[in-house]
């Protein structure tokens, strides 16, 4: 079946199978910043924005995205650059496999709750697991990023 998705503000048409998930369709079409982690909504690595809201692309059927807007980190390069600088300054990036999904989720947190405190940051991002950093440096980076934006 054909679906039409507006990815990073460009209209795209993809041929998809009814059982295909958005993650596979995106990777197949060279959106390689969207990555596979756990296959079952548990880790957050495959996060994309669906109509500006973070969703796990590993569990969103591609056909359900038909007619919607999808944002990957390629669609928020400026913001990701900024967030990257904050992560870098706090030593909050290690393996980085989850970082594009982290950028998308932090960006969406900024849209929803720009004044989020540490507890709210943790609650918003709890679905984004990290096995490397122990989280502390990430929270420092995100707090500073949000603080400097508002």
């Amino acid at each position: 079946m054909k679906i039409k998705i507006t990815i990073n503000e460009k209209d795209k048409i993809f041929e998809v199978e009814p059982s295909e998930y958005l993650l596979d369709v995106l990777r197949r079409n060279n959106y390689t910043s969207v990555r596979r982690g756990c296959d079952n909504t548990s880790c957050g690595v495959c996060t994309v924005l669906l109509d500006d809201k973070p969703v796990p692309s590993c569990s969103l059927l591609a056909l359900k995205a038909n007619g919607h807007r999808i944002t990957t980190v390629e669609g928020i390069q400026e913001e990701a650059h900024k967030i990257g600088l904050y992560f870098g300054n706090e030593g909050a990036d290690q393996c980085g496999y989850c970082n594009p999904s982290m950028a998308l989720t932090v960006y969406s947190l900024k849209l929803e709750n720009p004044k989020a405190n540490e507890q709210e940051i943790k609650e918003y991002l709890v679905g984004n697991l990290c096995r490397c950093t122990g989280y502390v440096a990430q929270h420092e980076a995100i707090k500073k990023y949000l603080g400097d934006q508002s």
């Binding site: 910043s33 990957t72 980190v73 390629e74 650059h81 967030i83 990036d93 980085g96 594009p100």
Partner: peptide, 9 residues
């Protein structure tokens, strides 16, 4: 390499 990775290269 943090910036490039964050930006999804």
């Amino acid at each position: 390499d943090g910036l490039g990775i964050m930006k999804g290269r």
